[in-house]
Amino acid sequence: MSVPWSLTAAAWPSGQVPADPGGPWLPQAAAPGGADCLVANDWICGAYLRTRSHELLAATVQHLGITAASVALGLLIAFPLALLARRRRAVAGAVLGLTTVLYTIPSLAMFALLTPVFGVSVAVVITGLVLYSLTILVRNILAGLDAVPAEVREAARGMGYGPARMLFGVELPLALPAVVAGIRIATVSTVAMTTIGSVVGFGGLGNLIASGLQGFFKAEVLTASVLCVLLAVAADLLLMAVQRMLTPWTRPRAGSRSGGRRTRATKAVA
């Protein structure tokens, strides 16, 4: 898989902290007082942040890349699966059953099972995360489409909407809140699970946690963990903002919530 961030990752062997912490562009001598916390192995260490900022940045970029690729690919696969499942109830049972089974398999085992297929590469991590995200995405897309009121569908059909226009013009906009809710859950859990990719050396911030464990480096572990949680929260908030922008009709207005929804639904038809 030739993805841009695999370059960053390749220059960055698993579990290895570069011996020289400071990049050439950084002032080499961190203030002697500031390095004390590195010697004392404190949990919180400003000197660590200063001297290893490029390493933290590279790990964060890899983390974001893996998460974004996984959720995007998951969505690309989940969408046709959900449409297919909606058409045929037999397919729905199979898809939901299979994704639930996949969801039950612990992530370490999932990555281990995928390793002989893809070798030790970022594809192992992304494939595993895509499989997990499918469970959540397919369920939510299905739930969203199922919740479209039958009368709205009838009205659209009466106005001469074909299946494709009905799907993209009426059903999907109405299903969007549920779909985005699924994307949010999938993204947040993918950010957290990416760390486990460190077993194959592609875990983003998880690599720093693993190397911190090996070197008993507390500041590295805590910083990477906090960054990871912050990434999850930031991604969640971002997606929430995107959903608000895309679905202005779900914002509570003077009228009741369902009332607002109804008006917009008719508007979408018109």
Binding site: M193, I209, V221
Partner: peptide, 15 residues
């Protein structure tokens, strides 16, 4: 619970 990485918590507790 979903946003907190299990691996991070395990390592933090171990250290």
């Amino acid at each position: 619970g979903r946003a907190v990485p299990t691996f991070a918590v395990l390592v933090l507790l171990t250290l």
